[in-house]
Amino acid sequence: MDILNALVAFLNFVFIPAAAYGAQLALGALGVTLIYGILRFSNFAHGDTMAFGTAATILATWGLQGLGITAGPLPTALLALPVGIAVTAAVVLGTDRIVYRFYRARRAAPIILVMASVGVMFVMNGLTRMLPGIGVNEIRFADGARFVIEVRSFREWSGLTEGLALKTTQALTLVVAVLVVWALFRFLNRTKSGKAMRAYSDNEDLALLSGIDPERVVRLTWIIAAALMTIAGTLYGLDKSFKAFNYFQILLPIFAAAIVGGLGNPLGAIAGGFVVAFSEVAVTYPWVKVAGYLFPGWQPDGLLQLLSTEYKFAVSFVILIIVLLFKPTGLFSGKSV
């Protein structure tokens, strides 16, 4: 019985939150890694573009709610996602046309593109704050049913002391992430455009010689990245809450995830997202409860928490450092260093 209680506590406080967070990071890291693979620079505007996409989705959600349309037990934001993706894709294509294309045509050093993306980050940040009703506020926009599994009904059903909660947003995150990843990989591996993208990422010159239109590949990349950013941002916002600054801060775990997996490697980005999320949650979770069930005789005097939650960003940083030290190309061998 105690082992079951320990398992449920572990699932409730570590596994489920980390899995949901990992899925959000993986979607974010997929966007970073795609842009890196095709456009060959680290996009610092990624976090703020996620914030913009989420804000657009929130506005569409409010519009739908105003019309009286909801998605029943699911969050209305799910219905609003296509609108958010379309708006974000338009904005992102606009920034590519105005900003990045110029440097791409001149084959500028990647660091110049990184710097340009910092400029885009500023503009995106300002744009997001200027959207009506968004500003710098913290916004909760999840509606519908809050839980798939509730603590109390789980306790009554199982007879355990520990309860298990599965929030709708967590379940939704996992389902959506699986669908998105499935669709993305199918696109990359089975369609002509996807193969063109992979060819371009592997060897630009060879791809050009075989008649692949580079501007088309770039446009496709931005549209897919915009979709990934909006979905990742919306899921993150539904799960926690929306605050523009948090999206700037999530940039570090996302980069860490992409590098851990190997920049430019989509499979690596997914693995990296989960590695970062599980380490972050495992290191900042106070294990005293789980230990109490597993070793009833043992009374530890601390919380058995390795790091306080304020330092969760340190975890992604340390993982990043370890990977850079020992395997700079990442676990799944991304692009050369």
Partner: peptide, 20 residues
């Protein structure tokens, strides 16, 4: 740690150390 690798890596590592 971060120098001697790709130029973006220093940017990302310094982003991290700044926040920490």
């Amino acid at each position: 740690v971060a120098l001697g690798l790709r130029s973006d890596y220093l940017a990302i590592a310094t982003l991290g150390i700044g926040e920490i």
